[in-house]
Amino acid sequence: MAELSVLGTDEVPIHTDADVVRVRQLVRAAAVAAKLSLVDQTKIVTAASELARNTLIYGGGGQAVVETVNDGRRRGIRALFRDEGPGIADVDLALTDGYTTGGGLGLGLSGARRLCDEFELDSAVGAGTCIQVTKWTR
C-alpha cells in the first residue's frame, strides 16, 4: 500500500460561530487547491460545517485540523474535529437521521458521513469526541 503523505496542515480552534465560518473557509480553500470538483468541494465544506458546529455546540468547543493529503494515487482533504466534551453515549443513535438533542434537524452527523468518502468517529463518555472525514479527488 502506498504511503500517505501530508502536503499541508492547518489548525483552527473552535470556540465561536466565527470559528465555524473560518473552518469552512479553510476547507474550501484547501479543496479548491486540491482540485476537487465543485460538487465535492461543496460536500466537504458542508460536512466540515456540520462537524465544526457540533464540536462547538455539543463538545463545548474544541479544535479542527485540516489537511491536504496524497495517498500515492490521488489527493484528498482530510478534516479532523476534536473536543473534550461529554462524548456520545450511543453512536448509532446519534448517527440516526433525525435524532437530535439540541432542537436541530438531526441530520448533521449522519449527513456528514454520507457527504464524505471516509468517516471515522471515536468518542468516549466523559472524555470527548474525535471525528475524522476524508474526501478524495476522483
Binding site: R24, R28, T42, V45, T46, S49, E50, R53, G104, L105, L107, G108, G111
Partner: peptide
C-alpha cells in the same frame, strides 16, 4: 456558498 442543516433550518 453552502446550505448546511443550520441554514436549511
Amino acid at each position: 456558498p453552502a446550505v448546511d442543516t443550520q441554514v436549511a433550518q
